[in-house]
Write a protein that binds this DNA or RNA. Sequence first.
DNA 1: CGTGAGGTTGATCGCTTTCAACGGAGGTGG
DNA 2: CCACCTCCGTTGAAAGCGATCAACCTCACG
Lengths: 228, 228
Amino acid sequence: MFVQAAEIGRNPEKFQFNFGLHNKALDFKSLDKHQILFSEGDKADSFYEILDGIVCGYKILIDGRRQIVSFNFPGDIIGLSSDEIYSINAEALKPSKVRRIRKRDLSSALREDPSLGVRLLKITAKKLAHLQNQNVSIGRKTALERVASFLLVFAKEKKSETSEKIKLALPISRAEIGDHLGLSIETVSRAFTKLKDHEVIDLPQSNLVIVNDIMLLEELSECDDSCK
Amino acid sequence: MFVQAAEIGRNPEKFQFNFGLHNKALDFKSLDKHQILFSEGDKADSFYEILDGIVCGYKILIDGRRQIVSFNFPGDIIGLSSDEIYSINAEALKPSKVRRIRKRDLSSALREDPSLGVRLLKITAKKLAHLQNQNVSIGRKTALERVASFLLVFAKEKKSETSEKIKLALPISRAEIGDHLGLSIETVSRAFTKLKDHEVIDLPQSNLVIVNDIMLLEELSECDDSCK
DNA sequence: CGTGAGGTTGATCGCTTTCAACGGAGGTGG
DNA sequence: CCACCTCCGTTGAAAGCGATCAACCTCACG
């Protein structure tokens, strides 16, 4: 029983990227679960706006260790690369839809609409800020603090809703969370259990998180003392 | 005896940012060692090009844990924020010079020069790629692999020089490296010692690294097996 | 020559990983 | 319809890596 409506990352009000290219060849693409959108080293002539689903960006070391550097939800952009080639892999975590934007179209679009540059810059800067936070989490936080921080991001996005309790349908597995937070599956699971035991969250299903106390969650995200 | 000429990050050919604003009020600023350029939460109406020295970007948790998210050398930009406020702190690690660029000037500059947007985007995307690599290091690599990766970045920048051995004058303390790599001072020190013992590097002074075998360093940056 | 900051090295502790077993949910085929 | 299987998540026990605590060293500087 998947609570689709409450699923995280589904934010219809989210900024929809508009290149003013509607009359030109639009390039939509459907992705199956686990389908690769692009791989590290591929020629990076396009980037993509996520329209539906989730596409993650990740890197793998030669021995298989994986680090997921971003989860991309509808409205997000993936594939902006400084180089001629992609620096990461992109894979759909569930059936997804994306819109392809060719870089060569970008230049002309920028000429036609100077404000586009500012907007794009803003999006990129936002990704930067998020990645910086991620760096702090992975580099300096304990397992519990990382998981709390991770949940907090989604909880804050949905906070505007009136009810005290925040319901999050996580469309992401423990393994994927682990690879995002630099933790093992087991450690992620234990952190969830600990948050549940301390009644910070409820966990009616493994993918359904109900945040009981967002203030406490916020405290825990920087200092897990009260959850020892 | 500081080997100034060989110091990392000193790359005179590095892209110098040009806003075509030379005739307008230029805003240079000198920073002492440890002087704060801006703090997290400050109004972010400007960003800065580093002209000389090193400025690091970092975050601190309430209990003092610090994560350095970037080292910025001459030619680099710091302070690009998606928000109205800075998301990080910026501090000079040694006497530095920066050039201030007001965001309101940016909009007009973008209108006058559309290619500027592409360039700025490229710079930001490069920072993004670097931060992603950093994420992989901190999230999935061992201490030795992280230090090897760290050195490798600088070694590759200087590789073009003819000699086999690459001489790096690290202008960064062990504590700063640790806070960048998510490690303690002691662990960083031990990693350096191990690299020295295995003759991957020489370490005539604590701040002077001579890379003997960049191929081996590259291997070690993803798999520290051969250095156990 | 004393002092203090930065770096190294050793010993111990603790958090996270790894290895292992178990349980539930969903899908398939007899 | 139920047995079986696989995938995912949870829990326990043991091992390992890095943090912490502590002592010592070196060097620059007053």
